[in-house]
Simulated scan of single mutants.
Amino acid sequence: MKVKLTGRDALIVVDVQKDFCPGGALPVPDGDKVVEPLNIYIKLFSGAGLPVFATRDWHPENHISFKKNGGIWPVHCLQNGKGAEFHDDLMLPPDAFIINKGDRPELEAYSGFQGTILDSLLKERGVRRIFVGGLATDYCVKHTVLGGLNLGYHVFLLSDAVRAVNVNPHDGDRAVELMLEKGAVSIVAGDIDV
């Protein structure tokens, strides 16, 4: 399938942060393997003058998702902490939009749209189609894709640039099935025509 980029497209890079990569506080198996394909997409979108957005978990110390606060996850992606930084090899352009999520203690936010200005920024730029990759397939990628679909965007899942945490076996596969069932379209970098 060939997809030609238009002026109404945007790339959304989800949570490619050190804590979600090998050696981090909440590592996604092979999480760092999304960096190289994402850099290809970033180059394609930047080269075409299209916006690049990068979401990141930006948690306060007392965030509801942490085990010590009654949540299910270890402490991760603390605001201004090393683990919250983007992977060193991720080549985000200087004009990339950084979207902080999960920055309120009482609000879990898997979707890049939840409690953020992402939808407003996309609408301001006339964006109709979003291309989503990053970490993790079964959590923040899934919820960002579903959030985009619910808001009326055409959503492409960058299947060569996602990895799952798989808390339960096959969570990632089930997440992909759900996203496609709800209307997302799965593509790889070779499908994009600039």
Score class of each variant (00 low, 15 high):
residue 117 I to C: 07
residue 119 D to Y: 03
residue 103 D to G: 00
residue 83 G to V: 12
residue 89 D to G: 10
residue 124 E to V: 07
residue 78 L to I: 15
residue 119 D to E: 15
residue 115 G to A: 02
residue 147 G to H: 04
residue 78 L to S: 13
residue 143 H to M: 13
residue 88 D to M: 00
residue 152 G to N: 11
residue 154 H to L: 13
residue 132 V to E: 04
residue 136 A to V: 07
residue 104 R to G: 03
residue 150 N to I: 05
residue 91 M to F: 11
residue 95 D to I: 03
residue 124 E to H: 12
residue 135 L to T: 08
residue 154 H to S: 14
residue 128 R to E: 13
residue 141 V to L: 05
residue 98 I to F: 09
residue 131 F to L: 12
residue 123 K to S: 08
residue 116 T to E: 02
residue 89 D to Q: 05
residue 104 R to T: 09
residue 128 R to Y: 11
residue 86 F to P: 06
residue 79 Q to K: 15
residue 129 R to D: 13
residue 97 F to I: 07
residue 132 V to H: 05
residue 93 P to M: 09
residue 88 D to K: 04
residue 117 I to E: 14
residue 118 L to Y: 04
residue 80 N to H: 14
residue 92 L to Y: 10
residue 129 R to C: 10
residue 80 N to E: 15
residue 136 A to R: 00
residue 91 M to N: 15
residue 88 D to T: 08
residue 135 L to W: 10
residue 107 L to I: 14
residue 96 A to F: 03
residue 111 S to L: 02
residue 102 G to F: 03
residue 88 D to W: 07
residue 94 P to T: 14
residue 128 R to G: 07
residue 83 G to N: 13
residue 152 G to W: 12
residue 149 L to W: 03
residue 76 H to L: 04
residue 123 K to P: 01
residue 94 P to S: 12
residue 99 I to E: 08
residue 84 A to W: 04
residue 84 A to L: 09
residue 81 G to M: 10
residue 139 Y to Q: 05
residue 103 D to Y: 06
residue 80 N to F: 14
residue 114 Q to S: 09
residue 108 E to T: 00
residue 101 K to G: 00
residue 95 D to P: 05
residue 143 H to P: 08
residue 98 I to Y: 06
residue 116 T to S: 00
residue 132 V to W: 02
residue 151 L to C: 11
residue 96 A to L: 04
residue 85 E to T: 12
